[in-house]
Amino acid sequence: MTDPLIDVRDVAKEYDEGRAALAGLTLRVRAGEALAVRGPSGSGKSTLLNLIAGLDRPSRGSVTVDGLRVDELSESASAKYRRSRIGMVFQFFNLLDDLTVTDNVLLPAQLSGTPRAQAAARAAELLASLGIDRHAGAYPGRLSGGERQRVAVARALMNRPPLLIADEPTGALDTASGMDVCELLRALNADGQTIVLVTHDLALAEACATRTIELVDGVIARDVTAVTR
């Protein structure tokens, strides 16, 4: 069996106030999987996501992504890890309002120092494949929620990361736009993109994920692999 893309071992996370967000969680995710993480508020979903993304460090245990010990990275190395190994999609899009769609999408490549022509070609390719190339010169404020989330996905995929993390990607969208994003994630996963998806939405999890875990009080209460999707 090949090494998992994500290997979370016995991870605990306690905040300063003593509250335990994760309590000895172990999780392995293989490349090509689409994992949905579900659970009630305060169950540790966002904490798990932050640990995988290198935005936070565990109090105990280890987090390895694509062979890299994320929990041991320095601030600088952690930033470089996020640039090259993961793409992130947020509930509220987190686009920079004063940059055009293209400029937003280009950011990860520009921060990595990718040659301009190469980055521009990749951005154009992504915008076209996601159907938002007509908005290339527009500012995010003029787009619909679904279109903004597509821009966010394009930006997340800019540096061809092995892992795409999506935090409630349909949480701020209407039903139609939510379905649209769901289709997009499914298509990406079908093309081999590994996805970790945090969601409250059972329908989204069932539609997009190949596997669903449910967290309760910082541990995995259920781990279900879909037979078919």
Binding site: E75, A79, K80, R83, M88, N94, L111
Partner: peptide
């Protein structure tokens, strides 16, 4: 918030 986004996208402390 913008700083958070940029850091999430991989902006290093030096950058």
């Amino acid at each position: 918030r913008d700083l958070g986004i940029l850091k999430a996208l991989g902006m290093t402390p030096r950058q």
